[in-house]
Design a protein around this nucleic acid. Structure first.
Length: 193
DNA sequence: GATCATATTTTGC
DNA sequence: GCAAAATATGATC
């Protein structure tokens, strides 16, 4: 994060975006904290969770350095409302138009995670088995990497992905937040055996 | 308890 | 463009 690309652009640009793009974003408050939703021309391209509005904007700016961020609370009113509702009470799945960019593998992993029911946690191995039932232990890292690069915090519930042991693995937005999310989902869906 | 195995991504030159 | 390091793990020795 300290070294700049000498060549101007690298392979990372494919992940951040093709070029200068206009992103509309809006922030809202939830029980988990401040939530930022960024919408591109295709759909929701980023959902961030943070402690303050400033932090979220900074994170978004770092994530999309070349993009032009336009704050439009009215434009994202609907999407933001859904995300906030989901954050407060994740009883149903998020129904948003997601603009999932990235490698095909990441997309596959994200789709698999998004297909998970609420209140259900799966292990890395199980999820890895879905996308690639060859070497579960190897694909586990792939799943972890895909989740780590997941820009759609709540839309893709990576917090439901835990280790096979049942314990919580790392979380990009903080382990405590992940723990809180799972607890909230369990409460909303009811204590399942 | 420590080490290796697998696949993918990212960064460096 | 090629090569090496790193990774939110899992299984084995």
């Amino acid at each position: 994060m300290d070294l700049m690309m000498k060549n101007g652009v690298t392979q990372s640009k494919a992940r951040a975006g093709p070029t200068a793009e206009i992103l509309f974003y809006a922030t809202g408050e939830s029980d988990l904290g401040e939530i930022l939703v960024a919408h591109s021309s295709k759909g929701v391209c980023a959902i961030l969770i943070g402690d303050s509005d400033k932090e979220l904007v900074t994170d978004l700016l770092v994530r999309f350095p070349k993009a032009t961020l336009v704050r439009s609370q009215a434009f994202l009113r609907d999407d933001l409302s859904k995300v906030v509702v989901f954050a407060n009470k994740p009883t149903q799945r998020l129904d948003l138009t997601l603009d999932m960019r990235g490698t095909p593998l990441q997309r596959r992993v994200w789709e698999a995670i998004r297909n998970l029911p609420v209140g259900r946690t799966v292990s890395y191995m199980h999820l890895a088995r879905v996308i690639n039932c060859v070497y579960p232990n190897a694909a586990a890292r792939v799943v972890a990497n895909a989740c780590a690069a997941n820009p759609l915090a709540l839309a893709i519930p990576c917090h439901r992905v835990v280790r096979s042991d049942g314990g919580l693995a790392g979380f990009r937005w903080g382990l405590e937040r992940k723990r809180k999310l799972i607890a909230k989902e369990a409460t909303s869906c009811g204590p399942v055996p």
